[in-house]
């Protein structure tokens, strides 16, 4: 009996050590590439959202959930991540539906252009933060490039062991850090860099979106219909990467065929009053807070007037949650403005 106990303790100790070492070696996304924390932050939420965004940086850098609450009473969250591919959006949505059923799901269609897995680093940021579930497993299999291995997602230590020579104080300091750094998935920027000399589209050999992209768009459409969710397809107003007329045609056709709403914000720049000298922080790729407010206003009005989603202002629990969130939001905004003035 004593011998068995010894073995159990030994194994437990080994597992604990391996767990700590793994945690230590994994990237913390604190001082740099903070977007790597986006996916995991969702699980810190009270999951009772009316609107859920899924998609790439064109959602988490262009729409402002705080404003959808203050101006429309909509509790929204952005499950976005850098270069989020369409199958990742699908599985993140499927994962979210294990916890909640939003009324509206908004998907940004730029990722339709990627028919195959792209880059491991982006995969890691879109997948590692997910809680383990069938959705996560399916997401890994759908996303892996030919050089990746499933086991390395199960035991990230196998992947990150070579970080041993790069470990910094921050790796120890933030080893179990789950602090929320974004605002319902929104990445706030207040600086501006005018959009000038934005390249047009180069000639492509093939403008047709791939079968794999369509497969997941079909799956997303079906999932939303089965759950009585209004799926809205959007193309954010980002000027680059170039959005081809041939792509636009395919999305318009898909939306029509599947009875979905589709908003192309590139065509609504004037209506949104976007000023590309002031409303972008990186020359047209993403909007800053000011540009984000403008397109969020259009979206909020659209959801209110076209879909008739009811405001939840007055819901005591939500009011309390948002009061705290807004305090953080405003303080972050002030800090960023102060930093900008100091530059």
């Amino acid at each position: 009996m004593k011998k068995v106990l010894k073995y159990v303790i030994t194994i437990a100790l080994i597992l604990v050590i391996l767990f700590f070492v793994q945690k230590l070696f994994m990237p913390k996304y604190v001082s740099d590439v903070t977007e790597g924390r986006l996916i995991a932050e969702y699980y810190e939420e009270e999951m009772d959202h009316d609107i859920l965004f899924v998609g790439d940086c064109e959602v988490y850098e262009n729409f402002v959930p705080a404003m959808l609450w203050t101006d429309y009473g909509y509790n929204s969250y952005i499950r976005g991540s850098a270069q989020q591919l369409i199958w990742q959006s699908y599985y993140l949505l499927e994962d979210a539906l294990r916890y909640e059923k939003p009324d509206v799901v908004i998907f940004n269609v730029l990722s339709m252009k990627y028919n195959e897995p792209q880059k491991e680093a982006y995969n890691r940021m879109s997948i590692e933060g997910m809680r383990w579930s069938k959705s996560k497993v399916d997401n890994i299999y759908a996303s892996m490039t030919s050089k990746e291995h499933f086991i390395e997602y199960v035991f990230p230590l196998l992947r990150y062991h070579s970080r041993w020579s790069e470990l910094e104080e921050e790796d120890i300091e933030h080893i179990f850090d789950t602090d929320v750094r974004f605002h319902n998935g929104y990445y706030m920027r207040v600086d501006a860099k005018p959009a000038k000399d934005v390249p047009g589209g180069e000639i492509l050999g093939n403008y047709q979106f791939g079968d794999n992209s369509y497969k997941y768009l079909d799956m997303m459409t079906k999932l939303c219909k089965e759950n009585d969710i209004e799926l809205i397809l959007i193309k954010a107003p980002s000027l680059y990467p170039y959005w081809y007329p041939e792509w636009e045609e395919q999305m318009e056709e898909y939306a029509k065929k599947n009875d979905l709403r589709y908003i192309n914000f590139l065509e609504l720049q004037d209506e949104c009053n976007l000023n590309w000298d002031e409303d972008t922080y990186d020359a047209g790729l993403h909007l800053n807070y000011y540009g984000g407010q403008k397109v969020t206003k259009y979206l909020g009005d659209y959801i209110k007037n076209e879909i008739g989603l009811k405001s939840r202002r007055g819901d005591e629990k939500l009011e309390k949650i948002w009061n705290e969130k807004l305090e953080l939001f405003n303080s972050d905004l002030e800090n960023k403005l102060r930093e900008l003035e100091g530059e």
Binding site: L18, P27, Y29, D32, V33, A121, M125, L157, E166
Partner: peptide
Amino acid sequence: VSLAACGNSNDSKVISGDVNNT
């Protein structure tokens, strides 16, 4: 763990630092 850390001569990829790039 330390051997794994050192023995990556054939390891095709390294995710560096804060995953600044793969």
